[in-house]
């Protein structure tokens, strides 16, 4: 059973399905173009693009997805995965049919997130040896990773 409150917050997570269409742009990338449109509270709080009731969702660009996930796929694998991913998208896509016009947008599903914050009091983690031991490649005092130079 999916509650309506949950629907609104689930949609944003499907953002990757719309990769080919620019999502709400990052405010940084928008700079220095000035946007003068006044967004309503509702729109500004929603991550979904302009037409939330769009019936069909675009098919994914599997190569692009693979690149974003830092996995390499052969052309055969891309062809193999494409319909499978589309199936999942279609399944979630059924949610697009839900009429949300009268529903207040919510930031997230009604999950049991602990709403308390924390005092700014230090507490050192007491089993550092164990987390360091779990690091695949460690050369005291640094974690070793393959040589990386900026890739965004």
């Amino acid at each position: 059973m999916v509650s309506y409150a949950g629907v609104g917050s689930l949609l944003p997570r499907l953002g990757w399905m719309r990769m080919r269409r620019p999502p709400n742009p990052n405010p940084r990338s928008r700079w220095p173009t000035r946007t003068t449109t006044t967004t309503t509270r509702r729109r500004s709080r929603s991550f979904s693009s302009s037409s939330p009731l769009r019936a069909a969702l675009d098919s994914p660009d599997v190569s692009l997805l693979a690149d974003a996930a830092r996995i390499s796929l052969s052309p055969n694998e891309v062809r193999e995965f494409e319909p499978k991913i589309m199936q999942v998208i279609d399944w979630f896509g059924q949610l697009q049919a839900v009429d949300l016009e009268s529903i207040e947008p919510s930031l997230r599903a009604n999950t049991e997130v602990d709403a308390r914050t924390r005092e700014d009091a230090p507490e050192a983690f007491d089993n550092r040896e164990a987390i360091i031991a779990a690091v695949p490649s460690y050369e005291d005092p640094y974690i070793k990773v393959p040589r990386v130079l900026n890739k965004e």
Binding site: G15, P25, N26, F47, A68
Partner: peptide, 10 residues
């Protein structure tokens, strides 16, 4: 443009 795929922190 970098695609940061922002979504609300659940």
């Amino acid at each position: 443009l970098a695609d940061y795929r922002y979504f609300p922190e659940p």
